[in-house]
């Protein structure tokens, strides 16, 4: 096991050490770049970008439409739907995608859209909470975040969120796993470089839930975190846990100013 880990670490280090053969000439990425902050869109191949560009061709929109349907569907013992309280999502949800996760004073902790929806379901609708990456959850999260489509990311990191932000930053820079790598080693130090056959991005969160070609469906940011953690041979946390909530806030803050792209399409 130890030897395998060493070999893996070697492979990881070698893969990262190879500089990208592509030099990014001054390509104009328009709204997908703000200063040095670049959306994953700018690292994707043109064919993948094209699938996202056309709202009709973007398969993630199938989940947005499903979410809209679920939004209006009564569920739970209280006989309510999302719409019963929140009416027209295009009005009531329009800043959610660009500002979450937020510090929720009433529960005294950081909350993202997924956890907020499940709190609504259990407390207000008297309905069963959804599984984190279930079709209904991905649908409603996509639908809600879509209402902020194009808005610049603008999360708050002060007040009650400050200590969460600090934890997220620590997580981001903490080496972990058998490869002994932190988030930053790929997504800050080596963004734009090749890791084997893929180009490393800055690891931005502004397009989630993102339709991944690999998954052949949309998935949550926390699912992506789990994938990254597994890649460095670290034990992943569960989706929706405090560790990943803090990391979500830090990652979203790294993308301040990038437009909400939900549902983005990526490799």
């Amino acid at each position: 096991m130890k030897r395998k880990a060493l070999v893996l670490a070697g492979v990881g280090a070698a893969a990262l050490a190879v500089p990208s053969v592509m030099t990014f000439a001054a390509e104009d990425f328009g709204k997908y770049q703000v200063g040095d902050t670049r959306s994953g869109y700018t690292f994707a191949k043109v064919e993948t970008r094209a699938i996202q560009d056309d709202d009709f061709e973007n398969p993630g929109m199938l989940w947005v439409e499903h979410g809209e349907e679920v939004w209006e569907t009564v569920d739970g013992k209280a006989g309510k739907s999302c719409k019963s309280c929140h009416a027209d999502a295009s009005d009531t949800m329009k800043n959610v995608g660009s500002t979450y996760p937020v510090f929720a004073k009433d529960i005294g902790k950081l909350e993202n859209v997924e956890n907020r929806i499940n709190r609504c379901r259990t407390d207000n609708m008297k309905a069963k909470p959804w599984k984190y990456d279930s079709r209904d959850m991905l649908g409603v999260v996509s639908y809600v975040k879509r209402q902020s489509f194009g808005q610049p990311m603008n999360v708050k990191i002060d007040g009650g969120a400050a200590s969460w932000f600090k934890k997220g930053e620590e997580f981001y820079n903490q080496r972990r796993g058998q490869l002994d790598m932190a988030c930053k080693h790929c997504h800050v130090d080596n963004a734009g470089n090749m890791i084997r056959a893929n180009t490393l991005s800055q690891g931005q969160g502004n397009g989630f839930p993102t339709y991944r070609l690999k998954w052949q469906k949309p998935g949550s940011l926390h699912r992506r975190f789990r994938g990254c953690n597994k890649q460095v041979r670290a034990k992943p946390y569960k989706t929706g846990t405090d560790e990943y909530l803090a990391l979500e806030l830090y990652v979203m803050w790294r993308g301040q100013g990038l437009p909400v792209e939900t549902p983005a399409v990526r490799n």
Binding site: I195, K214, N267
Partner: peptide, 8 residues
Amino acid sequence: VTIGGCGG
């Protein structure tokens, strides 16, 4: 078809 890189 590119294979290899970061899954998840």
